[in-house]
Design a protein around this nucleic acid. Sequence first.
DNA 1: TAGGATTTGTGCGTATGTATT
DNA 2: TAATACATACGCACAAATCCT
Lengths: 244, 244
Amino acid sequence: MQPSRRRGTPIDREVTLTKNSDLKVSNSRERFDRIYGAIREKICLLEYEPGASLSEDELAQQFGVSRTPLRRVLSRLEAEGLVESQHGVGTFVTDLDDQTLKEVYQFRLELASLIGRLGPLGRSEEDLERMRAVFMRCQRFAEAPTMPEFARVNSDFAQELASMIGNRPLRETVQRLFYVAIRVWIKTLPAERLAIEAAIFRDEVEDVLQALELADFEAVGYLHRTHLSMSFARLRQYLELGND
Amino acid sequence: MQPSRRRGTPIDREVTLTKNSDLKVSNSRERFDRIYGAIREKICLLEYEPGASLSEDELAQQFGVSRTPLRRVLSRLEAEGLVESQHGVGTFVTDLDDQTLKEVYQFRLELASLIGRLGPLGRSEEDLERMRAVFMRCQRFAEAPTMPEFARVNSDFAQELASMIGNRPLRETVQRLFYVAIRVWIKTLPAERLAIEAAIFRDEVEDVLQALELADFEAVGYLHRTHLSMSFARLRQYLELGND
DNA sequence: TAGGATTTGTGCGTATGTATT
DNA sequence: TAATACATACGCACAAATCCT
């Protein structure tokens, strides 16, 4: 299978095992998406905290690729504001100063109210079922909340919410800003407030789910806006507490 | 193992001549911005039309760099939806189908009304002077309009308008969508309508300038929204004419 | 201040994918 | 169907920038 090559290939050919047990060589697009998604998730879930250094060599080795495709991924993450590279220094997970955080949230508020107004996509029974599943996970999670699970269920809810946005540029903007903001939220949340926040979040998901069941998409947008607004107000309180 | 290539550097060291006549070697960031801006401008001004093929080799040669940094630029343009690369085939300037175009404009309408609401930046006398200069160029341009000049003055106006947006995520989104939409507008505009559109555009700039002079930023946003809405309605008419 | 260590950026040969003959 | 041409994708050696001793 391997053709004769004049240069050795120290990096193993990358293969993925699909659920059908078929051996399939990833093409470059899938590879990019996979690595991109993995690193973004680690950033969002604070496995890589703001300020943390991401070594190209190390990541390349981890994913079994050379630096070239990996640098492509980091370049994309940089364009979206999640990391920042400095020649000769390193690549670092970005942090958001107070002003930037405020701007991001203000913009997200306005975008939230557009969700139900700019051609929302009707929900199929499968779509509703997925959101119900998210809600049920929320319920279980609220009983025994952990920080990583909060981040995950939050992401999944945002994902489901985004999937009803028919307007593509709006949807992509909403998603991008979510990835920018979520890690700050998770990082700032005091451990002793986790249970309360988990309950609040469960209530939001419940509200949104009810509106979705009624196919009242405008209500979905405004509900989300309201909850976003209040969670930002609490976030600012937590930030002030942390600054003391 | 490796034939140690003591290879020279066939590509000349890139230098830029500043206005102070200082000889200055560009660093990688400036280089990226320069190449990125140049290609984006060519796409927006239809020097590279939708569907056109952008050869990496050719562009690299044109800008006096290797394919590596150039691919970084193309990758960024791809992330922003201006080009699309296919392995083994080529890199092509994207086109917008009717549905996408509609979504982009609908979203831009909503964003326009946010311009004056999300912390607009006060205008200094210099800022106003720059916008007055744009308006004067508009007046001269409306007397003897040409298509390339339309694109240019349109870009400059959008640039000035964006510079008053205090909310950075909003500003960047507005700019990105402008670059996506402007080339479709220029491409679709029938030559016989150029004079009329030039006059309409001059009026918009005049309206916005007046609101700016009064520091009524909310009015700026809604004026822009109104003009954007009407220009999209005309755009659809032109598209229907072109489809017959 | 100088130099080595480390990191990102660049150049180029080659691998891989696609279309055409 | 196989071969060829040509495009993007990748791996690696080296250049350049920065930091630390």
